[in-house]
């Protein structure tokens, strides 16, 4: 069993390395073996309907794709980049404006080639969306060592100026 705080910090370094996730402010709520919760804060820049203030489905898709892609860190013993093969999202409710949306993902089947992941996005007790996704395992070597070290938290002299701590 890995320490949840260590896992959360690892996932956070990964999420922070994705420019678009920094842009929309995705952050880690909690992580443990094979389960991850991320949060999408409400902001004006992700609104799809200016009349109602409802978040666009695309931002929910990004939240769920990132949560599914990052739970891989909590499911596999070592970090490796796994590209998304496909993603299917069912939208149950519009997200209530002005409030954050969280997504909880877990990996329910892992083979040498494929990871099967499911995820739900919610606000309190209301499920906003549900999704299933598959990810391809392309091997650890396909991810450059320097990047793997960054995600593992092995600080190299060149990049030790990292700033904010997000919401963990």
């Amino acid at each position: 069993m890995r320490d949840p705080l260590v896992l959360a910090a690892t996932v956070e370094r990964f999420v922070d390395s994705l420019a678009h996730c920094r842009k929309i402010g995705l952050c880690v709520v909690s992580a443990r073996e094979n389960e991850l919760i991320l949060e999408l804060p409400y902001s004006d820049c992700i609104v799809g309907n200016p009349e109602s203030g409802v978040i666009h489905g695309g931002a929910i898709t990004t939240l769920m794709d990132t949560t599914c892609g990052s739970v891989v860190i909590c499911a596999l013993p070592q970090f490796e980049l796994c590209p998304t093969l496909d993603l299917r999202v069912d939208y149950m409710h519009a997200a209530a404006p002005g409030r954050p949306v969280r997504a909880r993902a877990s990996c329910f089947r892992e083979t040498n080639s494929i990871l099967f992941v499911r995820c739900e996005a919610y606000q309190d007790d209301t499920i906003i969306a549900h999704c299933v996704a598959t990810f391809m395992r392309i091997g650890r070597e396909a991810t450059p060592l320097a990047y793997r070290n960054t995600i593992a938290g092995i600080i190299e002299a060149a990049q030790s100026e990292k700033g904010d701590e997000g919401c963990v």
Binding site: A19, H20, H56, G57, T62
Partner: peptide
């Protein structure tokens, strides 16, 4: 490009 952005687009 982030897969979520492609999906959102």
């Amino acid at each position: 490009i982030h897969g979520g952005v492609i999906g959102g687009f």
